[in-house]
Amino acid sequence: MEQVEQKQLTPDTFIQGVKDCIPTLLGYISIGVAFGVVGIASGISVLEVFLLSMLVYAGSAQFIFCGLYLAGAPVTAVIITIFIVNLRHLLMSLTIAPYFTKYSTLRNIGFGTLLTDETFGVSVVAAGKEGRLGGKWMDGLNITAYTTWIAACTIGGVIGQWLPNPEKWGLDYALVAMFVALLVLTLASIPKEKLMHYIKLILIMVFSMYGMLYFMPGHLAVLLSTVVVATIGVALEK
């Protein structure tokens, strides 16, 4: 990766990673609490909410887990669906991994294990600005997000025993709002002359998603549309 010399770079420290995670925490907390509440409402225990958030650590997959569990889906169906829902992490890891080749395999497994939509978003914005990512910074970001997520889900599970219907409070929209902000921040780091190209791709994405939703569930449409539109992006490059 090329280094951008003139700009002041983010220090590669754990504490800087923690700081850069803070803006996303509101999202983690509201979604985590919402998940805990939904989990309890769909009949899983607080301990299971805790285990899911610690071991699966993926918002959308955890929600889908509850939905499938409530619907009484067979074990294989649950596992295959979770696999497909989270397959987008493969693309995210593939995007982030090239920045960390100088670190040991063990550290790399650590970076990958704690990768989420949000830490991916934050690190992509940082990488877009500076052309590099630091390992200690990444650990700070990841571990802050991870511990906050587990705490928020578990607290949500406890609250869930009293509060039904988290959707009423608009908390489910926190996730989408976070994606909107991350998208805008990612676009902000793209060179001006390429911006129209990206806007065009986003318009193509609208049609791609709409069309694909006729044939497949949303999580699969996200995955396939991403692959297709990124390929179109390369093909339309000048």
Partner: peptide, 14 residues
């Protein structure tokens, strides 16, 4: 190709 993934995936999710 990977350079397009962030914008694609985030816009798809939105």
């Amino acid at each position: 190709w990977l350079a397009y993934i962030p914008v694609c995936i985030l816009s798809a999710l939105v």
